[in-house]
Write a protein that binds this DNA or RNA. Sequence first.
DNA 1: TTGTAAGCGTTATCAC
DNA 2: GTGATAACGCTTACAA
Lengths: 324, 324
Amino acid sequence: MKDVAKEAGVSLGTVSNVFNGQAVGESYRLKVEEAARKLGYRLNGSARALKTNQTDSIALLMPSIKHPFFAALTDEITDCLMKHGYRNNLMITNFDPEAERKCIELVMQHKIDGIIGLTYHPDLVIDEGLPFVSIDRHFSAGIPCVSSDNFGGGQLAAEKLIALGCRNLLFFRIGSDIYGEVNKRESGFESICRSRNIKYNSIVLNDSETEAPFYAYLRSRIRDGVSDYDGIFCNSDQLAVHVVSFLRSEGLRVPEDVQVIGYDGIRSFYTDKVICSTIVQPIRQMAEAAVDLILNKDLSAAPALVSLPVRYEPGGTTKDSKPE
Amino acid sequence: MKDVAKEAGVSLGTVSNVFNGQAVGESYRLKVEEAARKLGYRLNGSARALKTNQTDSIALLMPSIKHPFFAALTDEITDCLMKHGYRNNLMITNFDPEAERKCIELVMQHKIDGIIGLTYHPDLVIDEGLPFVSIDRHFSAGIPCVSSDNFGGGQLAAEKLIALGCRNLLFFRIGSDIYGEVNKRESGFESICRSRNIKYNSIVLNDSETEAPFYAYLRSRIRDGVSDYDGIFCNSDQLAVHVVSFLRSEGLRVPEDVQVIGYDGIRSFYTDKVICSTIVQPIRQMAEAAVDLILNKDLSAAPALVSLPVRYEPGGTTKDSKPE
DNA sequence: TTGTAAGCGTTATCAC
DNA sequence: GTGATAACGCTTACAA
């Protein structure tokens, strides 16, 4: 920068002003720009960061991005961030709370401006006003959470199944989402069943590694080739697809005998169709919401929860139109 | 840091040495560590970067991570990078050469230590010795490329199809991979066909948006319900799956009448099985190779091409054992 | 082995 | 509106 100043015959301050879009005499600006081009000069991010305490980068904590939902979310968040002139520091935690802690440590060391995180560490301490936006997990005051409208999604699933003729509903959940917003899917589902006076049941496997207990239960409720349940709402599309193939392997027809709805809205990457009837999460909107929140500094005044609307999409495992 | 020095009753240099793992008297080290803990001190990454010209971060340029292959690669690369103490600056370019240029600009501005890139800009200029490792694209001297063994993969596909009884082979490729290593899949495939004296044909759609021409061609080669071709090798799993469903919609049986092999080794995320018979790319090894290269500074002495071994996996679209 | 001091490339605060 | 100067927090000779 000193060289540019010399080359352009102006002072350091002026050069700085040019590069920061400050008001500068037009002739000076031109001279500086010319000199900068000639010298192939560009601002030094580290020096600027040191001075301003701003790195123009946000860390994104993800358990993994092999799952298509996480991948899509990461893709959109990165895209949003870049559109705002920010860089994305992607950190993969592999669902490991210890790794999450280490990531936070890194973030503070590098003075990264904020964190968007989908974490699995219940007691994760977010020190000293470090801007943090959580996805699908509700922490405490000052840490906004963005998620899909899980409660509404649960309701929607129940309403659909009932409208499609189901009278004996079942809810399935697996995974250690103990601290998640995700639990509300069940509540929403139940609330509709109750108010409509529809029989329902829930099976929740919190820390199970396997889905076997679901199948054992399901099998125990099949008599003479007929299932007690005619509608099943699953916590994820993945689970829904598994349940469907189990049912079929037991000789039941889907959707004729049993209808199944999943959650997420995962699309097959080669057909671009949903893989089952499902409640689809508004991924792009979630990304935008998270980025807006993290970039708008004033997290203390931010809503504790931003819950974005979901929609239902038939995918062949319910009696409404199936794709293909 | 000054505060820590004061608190510990030592000098600045000593504190710095402690944090950089330099030899320091044990009693001093303890005092410094104690003081640092008390003050909640941590090294300032920006200041350090300014001084050392090292940011401990690598940029990863990806066209998108919605595609499962890109997602898996990004996941593994990020993981490798973090294991080496580096951060990943993920940049999504959406296949846009202009965006790629901008990313490079960002990288230089922020003095990021290097780039791993899967790019679509044929003339991308990598200025001034900026460490760059390319994936699946061969640039020029000094820019190593890591890829799966595309030539070997093509050979393997041909060998398998022939071993499984095919006598009339076809190769399909789509996409604008004009500058890619990926073209070698075709060469490998052809080389085997020639040396085995097997009839084959290739259809390459370089800049087509749609697969329709493939289907038109395929249809023209079906007479009396029998296809001229009994074995097809596709450039990607995605294409392979599409071709399979086209063939079936035309009343042909796969794999009985026509056998199909894809490339990539994509797995269904809910069954974890490959989605067709395929040549699987060694994603983890590719990630490790790319990270090793970029971190080992001396790119001028690095191999121009690191080509990692692939393997074949049956997936139900060939006559060898099919899953499920 | 430890302390001192210069300097990395910016930005910001002043007088001018 | 422009130009000198201090300061940001660290590393690294070099001196003690």
